[in-house]
Design a protein around this nucleic acid. Sequence first.
DNA 1: CTGGCGAGCCAGTCGACGCTAGAGCGTCG
Length: 721
Amino acid sequence: MARLENSEIARLFGEMADLLQIDGGDRHRVAAFRRAGRIIEGLPRPAEELLARAELDKIRGIGSGTVQRVKQMLRRHSCDELDKLRRKVGPGLREMLAIKGLGPTTVRNIHNHLGIESIDALEYAAKVGAIETMPRMGPGMAHKILAGIEAYRKRRGKIALSEAQRVGRRIVRALAELPEVARVELAGSVRRGKAAIGDLDLLVASSDPGPVSSRFQTLADVEEVLVRGDTRCSVRLHNQQQADLRVLPAPSFGAGLHYFTGSKLHNVELRKRAGRMGVKVSDKGVFSRDEVLIDPCPEEADVFRHLGLPWIPPELRENQGEIEAAERGRLPKLIEAGDLLGDLHMHTRDSDGSGSVGEMAARARELGHRYIAITDHSKALGIANGLDERRLAAQMQRVRKLDGELDDLRLLSGVEVDILADGELDLDPALLAQLDWVVASVHKWTNQDEATMTRRVIRAIESGVVDAIGHPTGRRPGKRDPYPLELEAVLVAARDHDVALECNGGPNRMDLGDVDCRRCRERGVAVVLDTDAHAPRHLGRHEFALAMARRGWLERQHVLNAQPWEVLAARRARRLRDHGDPAWRVAPTIVQVPVGFELADDEGEGEVGEVGEGGEVLVDAEDHAWVDVEPLEAVAAPVVTSKPDAEGEGEDSGAVEVAEVDASELEQLRRGLAAGVLDDALRERLSYWLMAGAEDPTLEQALSERGPNPLQVGFDLLSGS
DNA sequence: CTGGCGAGCCAGTCGACGCTAGAGCGTCG
């Protein structure tokens, strides 16, 4: 039997916990099932393997009971306890848990008081006011339930791409073993990479369909056979998905694959085009107007060729302009796995991940990543053991130390900081400014209205310390709708502040979705494709984010983590500069200034604070957010810079900036460049100048001495060494 | 159900919000 994956075992434990809770079982037992599921989900190796090595029960939280159940599950996709609970509770009650606002206890109460066992019955009860007759239930709950049912119906029957792929690929593997099968492919919306999948479509090339069909009907995943034919066969799977098999002869496999990959709208449009060209396209091949076969099309590209088009990647086949683009030779060169250089969102066991920083780094090196950012949760997410300032600062030290020991991987210290209800960040901005990479995400208070939520996210974008907004819409394909958010306004803010939006590749999220990725492209907002890995083995899992990005027409230049780290670092450095270093914004601040030192405020006028006896100045950071002061020792001459207005249009209005060639520094740079080996500081300075357009006349002078085009010299140095 | 403490029992992740009821329970992250 095909191997059962950890996540599927975890799901069975989750179901067991749900059913037991609805049944009124011991809550600690319920919690133990949930915990076991969570642990198995996060295991670094297949549970089957650990079981064989007798290591499974050594894991904290997994005892002998769990081991016995896992054994049964591996054998038959269920266990005695689960069978018993399923018989006792029934599927309707468990289905009710999918309605937002209904938990196991409420479902149990509704069942006990009103005898309700299905969503239809629940809807009726809510409409006629029966819900309100129950203790602790009122009109508010009834309304909530009805709204929840409506939302549930809209997305019903869909499952996440990851699960559809997993089951689909398992079926593909099983069918591929048959000698009668020449080729087998997943078609339909799975092949197009849609986030939420209705049915599975499987396509087989074979000259002997009978055995293929009967094998399909007897797969372990099959619950019930719906349509029983040789070349066409439909079944219902254990996960309640429908799977359709079609068997066709190998010479027309390409035509069939194209036809059954869809989308329907794409096919309709393509057939219209065929009509205009005097041919017909079907799943059997390309025909003349009078039904004479021109080409059965063994490959998909043959179909397109007859229509005068290049092959169009499946992800684009949604009739969203791809045919026209193909016609003009303007198809996007879609982002590919090989383009990605790093991963900028992952968790370790410092919060809710299962690997250490070192383990994550090791895996990233195996995968050939050039850089990764460790981004654990912040303290507002108590359930995930989120980091407070102290723990994050300590982690930063550890990460930086380890980074220093690695020469082939840049290990970045970051955080996934929660965006609080009002848009404040959950951690001190002064600390956030010291990190290499900051993802800001909404996890809590997700039921705000659209205006509040939008303002909240934009405020985080405007903070200046945030590099990317994590899973921006909060959606869970097939499970939960996005929270209300005016994405357009968020896009504008993100573009204005050089903040990227994340396309989170977590298999339950895939957020941003395809449409939103394309909006980013159109609005000029950078996208970053992350795995949100919670274990080392998740790090290779870029395919779901890639699916969304490709469906959103993204190319390499639209994706931030397809760029070298220097580009990203420069973006961050520039943004911090433009927003004023938040370290100075912790109000009020006392600073030391030398005698003769003159402070300039936002308008470039002097005197922003009272000068005390020792020359210290109390700066009211509320009113003078952009006052910039060098530490006493570092100030050789009474030079003061101040920041222009926060919007930062005009460079240095009223501010005095040192913008001259420094002779001693120049000499030092000359030596550094002549050596040909860039140290980190120089590399950073170089990329900052190159990518962010920062002024650096000294550097420019040094570079121009090494070639006619200082920009070129700079690029060569950066890429060459 | 699991793990800890002590050899059979006991306690079990945090915190906020909404709903209904006027403090508490259930849900959601």
